[in-house]
Structures are given as structure tokens and as C-alpha cells.
């Protein structure tokens, strides 16, 4: 054992071996929850609701996902859960087709599969906990934007990335709604911010000076809203250029109070997590079956089911009046 490397390896092996802990055979139901990306505040608040539900129901919650939105990683994590033999898998799909192969495999092994936030192919899951259809989000965003600027003028969009599937979908419906309802409004630019708040700020600053007639910036990724708001504030255009978008209350409170950001739209993500876990457990215990018309989820009460979609309800609009009631 002259070689230090060899000695090091031996020591390491001994250390590793001593670390082994017999995993107690847990008799709890295991529910696994896959977000699109873990670091995203949206999913963090989702997890808070899920944790609460898991505690109430006495199940073990696994929450893991890619650290950045990544379809390939999502598949790998689901496949890992299959071999871990979890009871329920709930997924916010980054890519519809991609994830569905893995989910079908899970179903074949007797694992119950639910989707939430973003759906997979219909045959690869039992239910979709639908927080709002992409169409609903697009319409709500566009209608709120139109209301803020009196249905006329130029506006620009900040998106998370040019490749994220849900962002593209929302953008599509925003544009469709624009075309159909608000002929006097014009979308002048769409800029990506790579999910970075600082980049959203730089992009918005450039947008403001490039488009002097700009009336509103709509950011549809959560770091984008405070970034755009900071740019408007620094440009001294508070009130003249409105800021709105999809985001979280805590990240936007100060801008909403300062009158920079007018409204932040979000379905209640905590409730989304809560409802998803309740539905998952009910599914595993055979209490929730195909064809059910409604579903009762703990303290949240009863939700309607339409086909195989469990509906969470309309997106929520935070503004100066109500934003302080929320802490996530």
C-alpha cells in the first residue's frame, strides 16, 4: 500500500461501508412528484402545498426534478422512480411525447400516474390536474393586459426561453387572443431572458428605448416580472409603461406596492400541489376512478372533474389590494 491513491481508495471504501444504513421497510405509501424545474419558485410553492397534503394523509413525498428545465432528465428521474417502486408518480411534463414513454412504462408496472401543471399524452396517465388550460392562461393574460392599457397600443413580451414548451404554448394563445379580440393592440417584440432576472432587466431596458410607444411589458416567466419591473422603475416610466405577467407574490410585492407592476397572475400553486397529492393518493387507494364527476380534497373542498381533467379553477390575479395576504 505504498501508493497514496490506493490508500486513499481503501480508506474511502471503509468509510462508505460504514455509512450503510439499513433502509427501514417503510409501510407508507410513496408519492413521487416531478416538477419541470426544481429551482423555480413556482414549483417550490407547489411543493409547499404538496408537503401539507402528504402530512395530512400520512404518505411519503418524493420531490425531485431537473435543476433546469430538461426533458431528458425528467425521463431519467421517472425511470428511476419506477425501479424504486413508488406507488404514485405525478408529473409536470416538460415535453409531452418524451415523457409519455416513461409514464406508460410506469403504468405497466402498476404505478398510478397523474399529471399536473402540464399534461402528457392522454393514454399515459389517469388524470390531469388542470390548473388552467394554456388557452385559459393566454386569454387571462391578454385580457388583463388589454384592460390595463385600455385595449390599444404597443406591448412587448419577455419569455423564459425560446425553447420551453409551456412558454411557447402560452405565447401562442396570447397571440391568438390578441388577433381575435384586440385589433388596436400590437405585439412589437418577444425577448428571452433565460430565466434570469438580471437578463430580463437588460432586455426590458433595451425594449423600452427601442420602442418609445411601448405601453406595457408582459413577462410570462416568473423571474421576468421583477426584472421587467426593475427596468421600468429605473427608466423612470413607472405608471407610463405597465408591467404584468405570470409570477409569484413574494418576488413582486415591492413592485406592486410601488405601483410599477400592476397585476401578477397565478393560479394558486400551493393548492395545485395539495390537490395533486390528494388526487394521487385517492387514485392509489382506488377511491378515485375513471368517470368520477367530482373529487373532494381535504380542506380545499370539492373540485369538478371534466372528462379526465381535475379542474383547479381560474387563475388568480394578485394586485395591490390582495397581494399581502399571500406568502409564497
Amino acid at each position: 500500500m505504498k501508493n497514496p491513491l490506493l490508500r486513499f481508495c481503501a480508506a474511502g471504501a471503509v468509510l462508505l461501508a460504514s455509512l450503510i444504513t439499513a433502509s427501514a421497510a417503510d409501510s407508507k405509501l410513496i408519492v413521487a412528484m416531478l416538477p419541470k424545474s426544481k429551482g423555480n419558485a413556482y414549483f417550490i410553492s407547489c411543493k409547499a402545498g404538496a408537503d401539507k397534503a402528504a402530512k395530512e394523509l400520512g404518505v411519503q413525498l418524493l420531490f425531485d426534478g431537473p435543476t433546469d428545465s430538461n426533458a431528458a432528465k425528467q425521463n431519467e428521474i421517472v425511470e428511476n422512480w419506477i425501479t424504486l417502486g413508488v406507488d404514485v408518480i405525478t408529473v409536470a411534463a416538460e415535453n409531452k411525447e418524451g415523457i409519455s414513454t416513461a409514464l406508460r412504462k410506469a403504468q405497466k408496472q402498476g404505478i398510478k400516474v397523474l399529471t399536473y401543471d402540464a399534461d402528457a399524452m392522454a393514454d399515459s396517465r389517469s388524470f390531469f390536474v388542470n390548473q388552467a388550460t394554456p388557452q385559459g392562461i393566454g386569454q387571462t393574460l391578454m385580457d388583463e393586459a388589454a384592460r390595463l392599457v385600455g385595449e390599444e397600443g404597443e406591448f412587448a413580451m419577455i419569455v423564459g426561453s425560446l425553447t420551453a414548451a409551456n412558454q411557447r404554448e402560452w405565447q401562442k394563445y396570447v397571440e391568438a387572443r390578441l388577433k381575435e379580440k384586440f385589433p388596436k393592440m400590437k405585439l412589437v417584440a418577444v425577448r428571452p431572458c433565460d430565466d434570469l432576472k438580471d437578463k430580463a432587466q437588460s432586455e426590458s431596458t433595451a425594449l423600452l428605448s427601442a420602442n418609445p410607444k411601448l405601453k406595457l411589458i408582459m413577462a410570462i416567466c416568473s423571474p421576468g416580472v421583477p426584472g421587467a419591473a426593475e427596468a421600468v422603475k429605473q427608466a423612470g416610466l413607472t405608471g407610463k409603461v405597465k408591467v404584468m405577467g405570470l409570477g409569484l407574490p413574494n418576488e413582486n410585492k415591492r413592485y406592486v406596492h410601488a405601483g410599477v407592476t400592476d397585476s401578477v397572475i397565478l393560479w394558486n400553486t400551493g393548492d395545485l400541489g395539495y390537490l395533486t397529492i390528494y388526487a394521487g393518493v385517492a387514485l392509489a387507494k382506488d377511491e378515485l376512478k375513471k368517470g368520477a364527476k367530482s373529487f373532494k380534497a381535504g380542506s380545499l373542498g370539492t373540485f369538478a372533474i371534466e372528462g379526465d381533467n381535475i379542474l383547479l379553477g381560474k387563475p388568480f390575479i394578485f394586485n395591490q389590494g390582495n397581494i399581502d395576504q399571500f406568502d409564497f
Binding site: G39, D194, D195, L196, K197, D198, Q201, P223, P226, E230, E251, R254
Partner: peptide, 16 residues
């Protein structure tokens, strides 16, 4: 110098 420019810090701030 970046911190002094906005009232929030995003942990991803240095990415790229």
C-alpha cells in the same frame, strides 16, 4: 456591484 443594482438576488444570477 450587481447586488447594488436591484432589490433582489436570484441565485442563478451568475449563470453563463
Amino acid at each position: 456591484m450587481n447586488l447594488a443594482q436591484s432589490p433582489q438576488v436570484q441565485p442563478l444570477t451568475g449563470n453563463g
